[in-house]
């Protein structure tokens, strides 16, 4: 009977596909079981608080009394809040200084210390030191270095004949550059290590071939090193962007947002509104805004990276 053979073939087919599906599902389950411990941790300590913050941002919760639903009031307030505008502008200003300077400094150091120099190992460790040093100590020491009247930096500048050196952390114009300098000094060692790892992966033949063709060191840098390091650079830029936008500790210790509001950054405003004033709803709304800013910038960077790879 034709129908019988068809249906049995069908059945065999179906059985095979069930088995395949089962196998696939099993594979998925095995995969999940590997990820599960990690995911549970992520869910408990990142995902749930994140969703919690989203909910809180629509309330007036003060951590003590029961929250009231206030709809979009926190976001309307955000739109009009002069402190938020100032903090956003300051954070962007910080990022605009911190990202390119750290990138340039860490790349430069990595290229230099990738040479077969005597003592390169010691120097690499030395440049990595700031990153593992306690940030509070770093900030306090930089504060002293920047002291406008008796600090070594301004004494040095005086020595070079600068009559009116910047007032650094006591000046609204120079406080942010002072923070950027301190943060570049601190972070460049970490990104230098990433670049050093990237440099190991650049094939030596390329340099040899270029040398044979008569390319100078500068040309070799621009036409081999920089393109070969593109994946590392992408990673470094993404990390730097995120860390610049959520900068908090260094600012809190060195200037506390001052003088005035000249170095008030978004994370500080979140801390102040949330922890100090107990306006957790409004603080969550600012955090959400910060999160969105980071996400949009990162998405743009990924987009740009994909386009350049094509």
């Amino acid at each position: 009977m034709t129908t019988g053979t068809v249906s049995s073939a069908h059945r065999a087919d179906a059985a095979a596909s069930v088995a395949a599906r089962r196998r696939k599902r099993r594979g998925v389950l095995v995969g999940w079981s590997f990820v599960l411990p990690n995911f549970l941790g992520f869910a408990a300590f990142t995902l749930v608080p994140l969703l919690g913050a989203l909910l809180v941002s629509f309330t007036d919760w003060n951590s003590y009394s029961p929250p009231n639903w206030v709809g979009l009031a926190n976001f309307r307030r955000l739109w009009q809040d002069d402190n938020f505008h100032t903090a956003l502008a300051n954070t962007c200003w910080y990022a605009a200084g911190h990202i390119p300077l750290t990138l340039a400094a860490s790349l430069g150091l990595a290229v230099l210390l990738n040479q077969k120099l005597r003592g390169a190992g010691i120097l690499r460790t030395a440049f990595f030191f700031p990153y593992v040093t306690s940030l509070v100590a770093v900030a306090v020491v930089w504060n002293m270095l920047f002291s406008p009247d008796v600090g070594p930096i301004n004494q040095l500048l005086h020595g070079f004949g600068v009559a009116n050196p910047p007032r650094w952390t006591s000046s609204t114009d120079w406080a942010m550059p002072a923070l950027v300098i301190a943060s570049v000094w601190r972070d460049m060692g970490y990104y230098m290590v990433l670049y050093l790892a990237g440099l190991q992966a650049v094939p030596a033949e390329l340099y040899e071939a270029a040398r044979v063709d008569g390319a100078g060191p500068w040309q070799r840098f621009w036409h081999i090193t920089v393109p070969a390091l593109r994946p590392t650079t992408f990673f470094v830029v993404v990390m730097l962007t995120i860390s610049s936008f959520k900068v908090f500790d260094l600012v809190q210790i060195m200037t506390e947002g001052g003088p005035g509001r000249s170095t008030l950054v978004l994370s500080q405003l979140i801390f102040r509104e949330g922890i100090t004033r107990g306006r957790f709803g409004y603080a969550s709304a600012i955090s959400l805004a910060l999160f969105l800013i980071c996400m949009v910038i990162t998405a743009i960077q990924f987009q740009a990276q994909r386009r350049s790879e094509r």
């Binding site: 007032r167 000046s171 609204t172 947002g257 001052g258 003088p259 005035g260 509001r261 100090t276 004033r277």
Partner: peptide, 20 residues
């Protein structure tokens, strides 16, 4: 009090450091 205190402190810094 606490919000006013914040503003008065910030502007105090600017006046005393000669920024304003």
């Amino acid at each position: 009090s606490s919000d006013v205190d914040q503003i008065l402190t910030e502007e105090h810094q600017l006046v005393m450091s000669g920024q304003k």
